[in-house]
Amino acid sequence: MDNTILSAENISMLFSTRKGTITALKNLTFSVENGQFVAIVGPSGCGKSTLINILAGMLKPTQGRVLLEGKAVNNVNSKVGMVFQKYAAFPWMTVEQNVSYGPRIARLPKSKIEEITRRYIKMVGLEGYEHLYPKELSGGMSKRVDIARAYANSPDVLLMDEPFGALDDITKKQMQLELLKIWDQEKKTVLFITHDLEEALFLANRVIVLQKPEGDCESLNVIQEIPFSRPRLPELRADTEFIEMKTLLAEVMVR
């Protein structure tokens, strides 16, 4: 038995519009091993959002299927946690109520809910902010709530859809480091979608590069293992090997 937790099997997605059929994804196959950090990168229009919607079960592919622990994913479910690009903390709930949402919906015992909530609020460093509403938080803090909420629901896989896309550069880099720390602690599979190649290389064990499926091209461009040791520190971005790999992949991406 291999260690695969999530696999996409020959996925294609066609949309019919007034101008004819558009191919968003074509014959995409890949698998993700349990506990890995996998990044999916690609230029805009390569079907990243379509892919994440399919992986999350929000969209049914025209062809192929997604297997989570060997079972087909057909609708949105709590086994696949989501961190969205937009700030998705419920504005009518406090930080605490947001983080405890999953456990509360699952009707876990009260003591268990409290324990989980405290743990994940602590994990993202939001202690002392439990009773604030999202409107009172900065962008980075809001993102932390989203991450804590997703983790607190203990999904099998976490899908992160350009989660730091809306943040300023400094906050973004800070959040990347924190995410790596959390990932290291929690040992949970993360699928991280981004258009930022450097971000992908810095975070992931493996980068899946997508391309726009045009003509004979299929969706998958290349899968690259990222060998850099952990913990990864900001200095890595200046490392020669890192830069070489980034340049190489950037060339592959525009090809």
Partner: peptide
């Protein structure tokens, strides 16, 4: 719809 998706991905059913 973001909030509806978020809730569903956290395990909420229609009534939730």
């Amino acid at each position: 719809p973001l909030y509806l998706d978020a809730a569903r991905s956290l395990g909420a059913n229609t009534w939730d």
